[in-house]
Design a protein around this nucleic acid. Structure first.
Length: 318
DNA sequence: CGGGTTTGACCGGCGC
DNA sequence: GCGCCGGTCAAACCCG
């Protein structure tokens, strides 16, 4: 299609349009995160005290009954056993989490399609293409459900819109939008030829040091260079690991059992956006290790999984 | 030379 | 039908 000169001139004129916009999103997220971190801190501190008192009792027993050599051997074997138990639990948790998430997503999509079909049928029963229309609407809603937004702290002096999240992206466009003087960059995932994921990156109107990253779609390949377990954690946790900043996806089921948080020794402060990814990974591993040492936690985990499975089986029967 | 970035042009949805 | 605007295309360019 060939466009006339006037339209082309308009296109050129409108580049660089400046406007105003508001973003209350950041403030709301920070309040919500603050409450969440306080709760996690309380739980972690309580558990640390329980662990400490248990350890003291164990040491007294050992001192009374065993020689030093035996003590070392016992402790070493105990460490080995706990290490293996920790590994097994981490693996099991990942598998359960992955399976549970897939099941929930499938159920959610099915329900959404059913509901939109029912609603469309009841509102426009005479329309010949009502089924087609409702299917299209359902597809659109499912597609919308796969959109997530992540806020990342960036150096204000750095004008590039590059966000390192482990994937390879090819920039295919940049645009000035009406509601934000900063340009918006458009990226496609270039790791896999037919990966449908796109992302948009734009600086926040209110705080230019914050990059608003909008992801659309889901990767049809694995996270590059990540260990097996981290592939299996849900995307909310992955987002936390990648960005250590605010993230939101209202359609993402919360199946991480509230575990993806920093260890007790770091809990006196809320992690900020400058924390490195390595710090977060080490912290989470330490925290998982301390949790798996706690038999109460293991029992609670088993009970939680059992409850989830019961709930799931009830919902799928409905 | 291959892969990524830049940027002007084009497309299509939406509101009036 | 027209204008506005976000999203995408693709040629030119850059860089290791």
């Amino acid at each position: 299609m060939v466009r006339n000169g006037e339209k082309q001139r308009r296109d050129r004129r409108r580049r660089g349009v400046v406007g105003n916009g508001g973003d209350a999103y950041q403030q709301g997220r920070e309040m919500q995160e603050g409450r969440r971190w306080r709760k996690v801190r309380e739980v972690a501190e309580g558990q640390k005290m329980r662990e400490s008192s248990r350890t003291q009792l164990n040491i007294m027993d050992v001192e009374q009954n065993m020689s030093l050599e035996e003590k070392v051997q016992t402790l070493e074997s105990e460490i080995q056993r706990l290490y293996k138990e920790n590994e097994n639990l981490s693996f099991s948790l990942g598998v359960i989490n992955n399976n549970y998430r897939s099941l929930l997503q499938a159920c959610l999509q099915e329900k959404q399609i059913q509901e939109t079909s029912r609603a469309a049928a009841s509102t426009s029963p005479k329309s010949g293409s009502s089924e087609e229309y409702s299917n299209k609407r359902a597809q659109n809603e499912v597609a919308k459900a796969k959109v997530s937004r992540v806020l990342k702290r960036a150096d204000p002096g750095d004008l590039s819109l590059v966000v390192k999240d482990g994937f390879h992206w090819r920039k295919y466009g940049q645009k000035i939008t009406k509601d934000n003087p900063s340009p918006r960059a458009y990226f496609k995932c270039s790791m896999f030829p037919d990966c449908p994921v796109k992302k948009k990156v734009q600086r926040s109107v209110e705080d230019k040091s914050i990059l608003v990253v909008t992801y659309e779609g889901e990767h049809n390949h694995a996270v590059p260079g990540a260990p097996n377990f981290s592939i299996m954690v849900d995307s909310a946790t992955t987002n936390y690991l990648n960005s250590s900043s605010s993230t939101v996806n209202p359609f993402q089921p919360d199946t991480n059992l509230g575990l993806a948080f920093p260890p007790a020794h770091e809990s006196s402060r809320r992690p900020n956006c400058h924390d490195s990814m390595e710090d977060n990974n080490n912290g989470i591993e330490e925290y998982v290790a301390s949790l798996t040492r706690d038999r109460n936690f293991t029992a609670a985990l088993a009970a939680s999984v059992a409850r989830s499975l019961v709930t799931l089986s009830h919902s799928t029967q409905m």
